[in-house]
């Protein structure tokens, strides 16, 4: 029986993930101490989102992610969907900005760096174009689940982290685009209808991929057979559970997001009335 300490110990320690999570929570807390008032639910959503990302990468759960396909799919559900969804839902930019030291906040306006930040903003606006964002969101899932690419990613620590980072960052970008509200910033402002259309369009490819994995008669991801799965489980059952996770909860997130967007729209209408 594992102790709590053993569960909390990272299987594959990653300084960048640890630093990013601690920095995010630290900045958020600093922002609140400096007067930002995000509200209880927003703060909870942000902490839960960061906590989820940390939990699936920097605890013993990561061990199961590397030795069970179904656990890996749950890990990516948290990294690409749930965690970034909650973070974006909390719209933390104002709180995080308040937490930054003033010197860092003024960096974009500094003479030598204006061009760099302009370029960064331009790149950000390009990858946040609705079609590009949607293709990237679905494309990355397909890319990392291509059996040969998946094999290589799970066989190399560097590629493994590249996979996880790209999933988390892309998830953040996508859900940020979906939930962007408040003052106009660098993120393209889409109408609720456009957002719901994108959410509807990304569902069928995820459903198709999940169904393909679930109903495939062959073992598609043989990397999990190299060392053996974390515990004795039929490889096909493991694959079917992983397929269902790719299929149902991942697609359901689109429905939940559409409801959230409609709620925001109603809230705005009520304010204007």
């Amino acid at each position: 029986m594992m102790t709590l300490i053993e569960w909390l110990r990272p299987w594959e320690p990653s300084a960048p993930v640890f630093i990013a999570c601690v920095l995010a929570i630290g900045l958020y807390a600093a922002g609140m101490m400096r007067g930002a008032r995000p509200g209880f639910w927003a703060a909870l959503a942000f902490c839960l989102g960061v906590g989820l990302i940390y939990g699936v990468t920097q605890t013993h759960y990561d061990y199961y992610s590397q030795y069970l396909f179904s656990a890996h799919r749950l890990q990516h559900l948290a990294l690409h969907h749930l965690g970034p969804f909650l973070i974006a839902l909390s719209m933390p930019s104002a709180v995080l900005a308040a937490g930054l030291p003033s010197g860092v906040r003024q960096l974009p306006a500094r003479n030598g760096l204006v061009g760099f930040f302009k370029l960064l903003r331009g790149v950000y606006r390009v990858i946040q174009q609705p079609v590009i964002a949607a293709v990237l969101f679905v494309g990355l899932i397909y890319f990392w689940l291509t059996p040969s690419i998946h094999f290589d990613a799970m066989l190399s620590i560097d590629r493994y982290w590249l996979m996880n980072w790209t999933m988390a960052l892309d998830g953040l970008l996508f859900w940020w685009l979906m939930f962007e509200r408040g003052d106009q910033g660098a993120t393209p402002r889409l109408t609720p209808g456009q957002r719901i259309l994108i959410l509807a369009l990304i569902m069928p490819p995820q459903i198709a991929l999940g169904a393909y994995i679930t109903f495939s008669g062959q073992n598609l991801f043989d990397i999990y057979a190299v060392c053996g799965r974390a515990f004795p489980i039929d490889p096909m059952l493991d694959q079917q559970i992983g397929g269902l996770i790719t299929w149902i909860p991942a697609s359901m997130m689109s429905v939940v997001a559409a409801l959230v967007i409609l709620a925001f729209r109603l809230e705005k209408s009520n304010e204007q009335a």
Binding site: Y63, Q66, L155, S156, I157, Y160, C227
Partner: peptide, 25 residues
């Protein structure tokens, strides 16, 4: 085998494979 290495070192299943992945390249 990977299992022998795990056992020799008194570590859990997958530890030798993890080390193998670190140096596989």
């Amino acid at each position: 085998t990977l299992r022998q290495i795990d056992r020799m070192n008194g570590v859990i299943k997958g530890s030798a494979f993890r080390a193998f992945k670190r140096v596989a390249d």
